[in-house]
Nucleic acid binder design. Sequence first.
DNA 1: TGCAAATCTTAGCCTACACTAAGTTTTGGA
DNA 2: TCCAAAACTTAGTGTAGGCTAAGATTTGCA
Lengths: 148, 148
Amino acid sequence: MPTRRPDPARCLPSAEAQASRFARQREADRAATAEDYVELIADLIREEKEARAVVIARRMGVSQATVTATVARLQRDGLVETQPYRGLFLTEAGQQMAAAARARHELLVRFLIALGLDAETAEQDAEGLEHHVSDKALAVFGKFLEGR
Amino acid sequence: MPTRRPDPARCLPSAEAQASRFARQREADRAATAEDYVELIADLIREEKEARAVVIARRMGVSQATVTATVARLQRDGLVETQPYRGLFLTEAGQQMAAAARARHELLVRFLIALGLDAETAEQDAEGLEHHVSDKALAVFGKFLEGR
DNA sequence: TGCAAATCTTAGCCTACACTAAGTTTTGGA
DNA sequence: TCCAAAACTTAGTGTAGGCTAAGATTTGCA
């Protein structure tokens, strides 16, 4: 007769451990919008010389009013600089965030494609995964890419 | 002299493609809370015979009032059934969502551990990644696990 | 050069998901 | 049996991130 002890893989984690995982999760969720905007602003400045709110609205698929509000939060948080009716600029902190986000994004895309995923799905998935993947996980992804 | 054409990997996607990726992203974000709750409720029912709001609050790291409000949304959306001062139950749809979430979660954890990640980080990352990983990506992760 | 179109902001609204504080209902143990 | 503690709800508040509609500013072109 098999033991009554449940499969360890099916044991619940301690309440404290689980709560802190969810808390870190909520933290990452809050940072995600900022990262997406900052990443897009950096891309636009590199590719089109300036980042206009109207272009961000079109590319994010939101209204211009939403961009105005979100950019105000980014400015409050020291990531972006604006002058009314001018393009947007990244602060030093914003540039660092954009560079880190871009690095994560590109490593993820290369990793997913190396595993056999099509490029379009890899892009879509990387967009979501990049905000929730730890540095440790990125490191093992990188090692996998090297050692392939 | 190198060509002036930018590195293709650095070209921006079309505005429409990018907007629809962000839209799908927002969709996934909205679904994430529901999936987390439903998954936890299913775990509690399996492991402890019932899912009490007070336990969910402790494990999610939020107040009981937040659980009440969130559960009301889950009920409105046909995922959960409640009677006041009784444990929570999953509807048919809720059970299906929980089973799917659990399968995604476990495949992700196995995949991350197979790549060399420690178990604790694998759990933490899976928590965040499971809401943003496509079925296609899960399929290639599964193939990797098989063919290892 | 001057006005129409493009761009941006403001105002007002909504939902999700957090919180605290103050109730209400249930339940278990003395 | 009954009351205190536990569990749950309600009320009121705040922030993020969406929206539309309408006003302000800039810019480009006829």
